[in-house]
C-alpha cells in the first residue's frame, strides 16, 4: 500500500490550486485532459484480460491513473500522479469484483524549475530514465499489453530526489538526464521485487531523438540495495527506429553486482528484447517480440516471444490482443493470451 499521507497531500494541493485558478478552460476532447487555467488534469485507464495456458483467467482494471500538472512560472511547475492498480473485475472461479485488493500508489510527485530554456531541475519522485519503455509505460502509449522484463526488472523504475535535465535545441545533441536519489523512496513502489529495494540511486541517460519518434539512448545507473552490502551498476542501450511502415524497438541492459548476497546465483544480470511492428494503416498494427532475460537469482534464463495486433480507432484509444509464449525460468510472464483496452482521458 502506498503512502496515503503523500497521496492525500498531493490531491488536496491539486484541488486547492484548481479552485484558486479557474480563469479559462478548453473544450474537452478524449485524450487531451481538462485544462483549467494553469492546471491540467488527465489520466488513463487500462483494462486487461489474461487467459494463461495454465492458471485462472482474469479481467482487471490495471491501472486507473490520474495526473495533475501545473504550469505557473519558471519556478513552480508541479506534477502529481496517483494510480489505482489491480482493480479486480472478474476471475475464473471467483465472485465478480472479489479476490485481490486494488492498491493506491503515488507514482510521481515533483516540481520542475526551468533554470534556463534548455535546462530543468526536477525535484521529487519521478520515473527513472533507463531505456524508453519505463518513461512512457502507460497502457495507451506502449505497443503491447505485456511489458518486457528488461524494461523494469534490473533497476529502480522511480527515483525520489533531484534530476537535472538538459534538452538542447540541436537534435544532434542528446537530451541528457542526471539524477540522484540520496535515500529511500518517497513512497513504496508497487512492483518492487523482493530483495531489490534500491537506495542511493544515481544515474545518467543520454537520449538522441529525431523526427518525433526515433530514439537512441544510453543509460547508466548505480544503486545500493537496501539492508545489505550489495550494490549494482547497470548499463543500458535502447533504440526506437521508424522505417514506415516498420518500427523496430529494442532495449538491452547488463547489470554488474558488487558484493552480491550469498543467495544470488550469479554476480550479474542481463536482458534484451527486440520488437518489430508493422503498421498496416493508421489504425491497425502487428507486432512480434523476442526477449531473453538472465536473472541474478535463477539458474535458467527466461525467454519469451510475443505475437500481437493492435487497433487504434483514434490516438487516445487502443485495443491490443496478443499471445505470449515463454520458456525457461518463469519471471512474472506466463504463456497465454493477453488482451487490453487502454484509454487516455
Amino acid at each position: 500500500m502506498g503512502s496515503f499521507r503523500g497521496q492525500y497531500f498531493g490531491a488536496a494541493a491539486a484541488a486547492g490550486l484548481m479552485l484558486g485558478h479557474a480563469a479559462y478552460a478548453d473544450d474537452y476532447k478524449l485524450g487531451q485532459g481538462v485544462r483549467i487555467d494553469d492546471l491540467k488534469v488527465s489520466g488513463y485507464m487500462t483494462v486487461d484480460a489474461e487467459v494463461p495456458d495454465k492458471g485462472k483467467s482474469e479481467l482487471l482494471a490495471d491501472d486507473l491513473s490520474l495526473y495533475v500538472q501545473g504550469r505557473f512560472n519558471r519556478f513552480f511547475n508541479p506534477f502529481f500522479e496517483a494510480e489505482i492498480a489491480g482493480i479486480p473485475l472478474l476471475k475464473e472461479g471467483e465472485d465478480p469484483l472479489s479476490g485481490k485488493t486494488a492498491t493506491v500508489v503515488l507514482e510521481r510527485l515533483y516540481n520542475d524549475i526551468y533554470l534556463k530554456d534548455d535546462l530543468t531541475l526536477r525535484i521529487g519522485k519521478s520515473l527513472s530514465t533507463v531505456g524508453e519503455w519505463n518513461g512512457i509505460h502507460a497502457g495507451p502509449l506502449v505497443p503491447t499489453a505485456t511489458r518486457p522484463l528488461t524494461t523494469y526488472r534490473s533497476f529502480s523504475e522511480f527515483i525520489s530526489g533531484p534530476a537535472l535535465i538538459y534538452r538542447p535545441s540541436d537534435e544532434a545533441l542528446p537530451v541528457t538526464t542526471l539524477y540522484w536519489q540520496p535515500a529511500g523512496t518517497m513512497s513504496h513502489d508497487l512492483d518492487t521485487i523482493e530483495n531489490r529495494n534500491f537506495r542511493n540511486i544515481r544515474g545518467v541517460n543520454l537520449s538522441w531523438n529525431w523526427d518525433l519518434e526515433n530514439t537512441v539512448g544510453l543509460s547508466l545507473q548505480e544503486a545500493n540495495i537496501k539492508d545489505s552490502d550489495e550494490s549494482q551498476t547497470l548499463a543500458g542501450f535502447n533504440a526506437h527506429l521508424v522505417f514506415e511502415p516498420f518500427v523496430i524497438r529494442t532495449e538491452a541492459t547488463y547489470t554488474w553486482l558488487h558484493s552480491p548476497r550469498s543467495m544470488r546465483v550469479r554476480d550479474h544480470e542481463a536482458g534484451i528484447f527486440v520488437q518489430g511492428e508493422y503498421n498496416l494503416n493508421d489504425r491497425w498494427a502487428l507486432s512480434a517480440r523476442y526477449e531473453y532475460f538472465q536473472d541474478r537469482d535463477y539458474v535458467q534464463a527466461s525467454k519469451n516471444a510475443v505475437f500481437g495486433m493492435a487497433y487504434r480507432p483514434q490516438p487516445p484509444v487502443v485495443w491490443k490482443l496478443e499471445y505470449l509464449t515463454q520458456w525457461g525460468q518463469e519471471l512474472g510472464l506466463r504463456s497465454g493470451v493477453y488482451a487490453s483496452l487502454a484509454v487516455l482521458f
Binding site: S42, Q69, R71, I136, P140, L212, E213
Partner: peptide, 15 residues
C-alpha cells in the same frame, strides 16, 4: 503522429 507525440509528451509532464 503529432497526436501520438503530444500524448507521449503529456505523460512525460509537458502540457
Amino acid at each position: 503522429s503529432l497526436a501520438s507525440y503530444w500524448n507521449h509528451m503529456q505523460f512525460k509532464g509537458f502540457m
